[in-house]
Design a binder for these strands. Structure first.
Lengths: 336, 336
DNA sequence: TATGTTTATGTTACCGATAACATTAACATA
DNA sequence: TATGTTAATGTTATCGGTAACATAAACATA
């Protein structure tokens, strides 16, 4: 491998002079600079970031830890985050936690060892506390995307859960629904908690009543909703929900599937709307009404805040950025 | 930061002994090992990969360079690749080339500086040659996913373009179509070239004729197909295609959209089928007939071959893995 | 008993860069 | 002319590990 020593020898200067040229130090004569630059080009020298990092204590590496890169919502966050990282000269490491705190823990250990400059994380839930404490203890800056953890002070970029929930409920209320169910994520995850509260508030706002039996808590990656749907359908017709709000795209799509399997027609018998668009490339004839969170911006802004933290240009107090969603009304909530 | 020197001092041994314990060297007495391990735990020591890598010449970093992480096909490749990487103790860096050779070049420079152990790449096309040469020159192992570059010898994991194309054409022929169009990617990308040839061969196999005016070359991320569709519709009715094969999900979806805008009914007037499912979470009522390539396996197998190359356990000759697709027939090709 | 072998541990140098300090030459100033 | 100042460059130590070699103690063998 070509090192600054090879360059130095060939250019007849000291390695330190080469280092100065590479780092654009002003204390270099024009003549020397040109000479060294010529040799660098000639020998096709590339600085070794590892060696540099050992001294400078920075790696220009940022880790993104998300539940699942295959979910279009997180995919788009990743895309936004990566764009910002590249702009600022950082490279992005990817980690899927699969909503499992122990897998997340494995990543945290890995990235602590890799000495990343910072971490952008959508934590698996409140159980992530110990993982985040580990980061904090080692003074690795981190920023939350999509979700936060109670008791940990850090910047957050997320969708506006309150306003988004309100929009979904208002839309359904407008369509005449009076009994609306919520199929939510686990209460151990901040956005599920927020969505639940926002849902209850939104019902009041729309002049509707809340029914405890229509408030379901499940997982964001639950893949069968047959039991839940069956329970709904077992209710007396007057007690059945006529509309369902699903707390993410995965729940939304799989609820639709369960309804279809049980021959419940959507939206005629039950309307369905959800958070996050399941389709990154909108299909010909999309069916599901969604409140699309601005995932790209969440990733981009989150990364921006993180880089500001890393580079010390962020304000001392932590920032919470809530971005508005876009309600996209489709067939699953509008009767023909 | 806690280093092996801190551990050594506290445990009353030399730093080298600590290093041996960390690396599970057998030449350590049980007593010393336990003593050192206790101090390591007590002081919460984490090895510094940068320092280690400076000596060992490995970073346990692999870079994945793909056109776009937001495209579900590549997303799923990333997911498979990441799973395999983690299993084998590697971390994955992500880079989006956006189908631009110069952006790809920027990444290659970055990862050369980061001293990654290997690169998994879906090259932007034949123009990637110089970028790949750079990698080869520096002896950074790389493996192709989805696409290869003529003149570069490396392992490849991809879908079986020939067989997949044949299936799509056979399906359309079975539906009675005699004039089938192909809207393809750029001929500078290997899989577009392969799909074109496979398409022509498949037509022959199905006893159909090829019409040059129905062979369109465009971009994999082209977003408007109005002109192409308009040209088709301007043909005399007997010369118009009755079916279109789109070379990827993006082309497929946007062709559908263009057809819709021009009030061409699908599949009645024109049927449409494409490579790669645009929907990572199949929607309630998916419309588009697709040949779904096994993206997860492409990523997983590609990463596996790469790790074998890195660790020197791969055979000298390069391997080409072609994985079969699954034809999913939906409404866009089947008249009601 | 002297020597060889094995096992466990320590010492030194180095990976490729940079920070901190040292030196030199050129020039300005008194 | 002696001294101070500035600009350009060099030297040394260090970052946190590990390879290679050195050493010491314990034991076996002739």
């Amino acid at each position: 491998m070509v090192t600054i020593y090879d360059i130095a020898k060939k250019a007849n200067v000291s390695p330190m002079t080469v280092s100065r040229v590479i780092n654009h130090s002003p204390a270099i004569s024009e003549a020397t600079r040109l000479k060294v630059e010529a040799v660098i080009r000639e020998m096709d020298y590339i600085p070794n970031k590892q060696a540099r990092g050992l001294v400078s204590k920075e790696t220009k590496l940022i880790s993104l830890v998300i539940p699942d890169i295959a979910n279009p919502f997180f995919t788009t966050i990743a895309r936004g985050a990566e764009d910002k990282a590249l702009q600022s000269g950082y490279q992005m490491l990817l980690g899927n936690s699969d909503e499992q705190t122990d897998k997340e823990c494995r990543y945290v250990d890995l990235l602590l060892s890799s000495k990343v400059d910072g971490v952008l994380i959508a934590p698996t839930g409140d159980a992530s506390l110990s993982n985040l404490r580990k980061l904090a203890k080692r003074r690795v800056p981190f920023v939350f995307v999509d979700r936060y953890v109670e008791g940990i002070d850090a910047d957050l970029a997320s969708g506006d859960n309150v306003e988004t929930t309100r929009e979904l409920v208002a839309h359904l209320a407008e369509q005449g629904h009076r009994r609306i169910a919520l199929i939510n994520g686990p209460s151990g995850i901040s956005n599920a908690r927020e969505r639940r509260q926002a849902f209850l508030d939104a019902l009041v706002l729309s002049g509707l009543e809340a029914y405890p039996e229509l408030l379901i808590e499940t997982h964001f990656r639950q893949d069968s909703f047959s039991d839940i749907v069956r329970t709904f359908m077992a209710l007396a017709p007057s007690a059945r929900p006529t509309a369902i709000v699903a707390a993410n795209n995965f729940i939304g799509v799989n609820t639709l599937r369960a309804l279809k399997e049980m021959n419940v027609t959507v939206p005629d018998e039950i309307a369905v709307a959800c958070f996050d668009d399941p389709e990154p490339i909108p299909d010909y004839n999309p069916f599901l009404t969604v409140a699309a969170q601005p995932a790209y911006d969440i990733g981009y802004m989150g990364m921006q805040m993180l880089i500001e933290r890393i580079e010390g240009t962020a304000p001392a107090r932590s920032r919470k950025i809530m971005l508005p969603s876009t309600l996209i009304v489709r067939k699953s909530t509008v009767k023909a």
